[in-house]
Design a binder for these strands. Structure first.
Lengths: 115, 115
DNA sequence: GGCTCATTCAACCTTTCGGTTGACGATTGC
DNA sequence: GCAATCGTCAACCGAAAGGTTGAATGAGCC
């Protein structure tokens, strides 16, 4: 039996890297060109390009070429699948926005300027 | 700048493996001994032991030795942290329990008896 | 004490991951 | 046309993941 392609694993794997989570947080603000995504990080453009590839294959972002610039855009629906899966474990309060803010702050503080 | 230990990455990394997600789903039903956790899978006991190690280091489960048996227990609070992080991307409807059930079914169907 | 069962440890292997560098194809601007 | 810019590709590297097997540890049973 063709065992139902595993869409969840690539999503979680993509989220497992702090650089990629930082990229997602940046894209939350606005669509960005690849070069601009790479700018805050200390690694090479090629490395960022690979990270974007991973995110795109997980369905977390999409990339659209306009002229010679490729624009990256957040695709939140993929995260929805993972989020729904996780809701099964423990009956959390639906959404705790204060906690979210704290986590995002920590992520953004440690993300771009620190490996 | 002490770069704030990254608690999120190990959690997502742990969730990125379908075997480990299947284990979590099993533990959702009840606490289990290591041997019993391993039973439905086709891999060696040592491999399962390593998976449990990964889950424990991510904080997703705890292990308690009683007699010569080690009991594994789900620790949903770790998932809460990750869940909260994810809520920031896209304003999903709080919780879609029907969708959750569908996902869990797919996971359980493809998980234990298929690599 | 000695056997058995539950679990981990240790060593090993292969594949994937995350990064580098340098060359390359497109696209734009002068 | 030519040069600079945007982004990816290809080859390479070291480290980590995910699995195996076999030996070791520890608790319980008789």
């Amino acid at each position: 039996m063709t065992p139902a392609p595993d869409r969840l694993s690539p999503i979680f794997a993509a989220l497992a890297d702090p650089t990629r989570r930082a990229i997602l947080a940046m894209l939350l603000e606005d669509d960005m060109a690849v070069t601009d995504v790479a700018e805050p990080f200390q690694m090479s453009l090629a490395a960022i390009s690979k990270h974007l590839q991973v995110l795109a294959e997980a369905g977390l972002i999409s990339r659209e070429k306009r002229g010679r610039v490729i624009w990256c855009k957040l695709e939140p629906d993929a995260l929805k699948a993972a989020s729904v899966w996780m809701q099964g474990f423990g009956q959390f309060e639906p959404v705790d926005l204060d906690a979210l803010e704290r986590f995002l702050e920590v992520e953004l503080a440690e993300g771009p300027e620190e490996a």
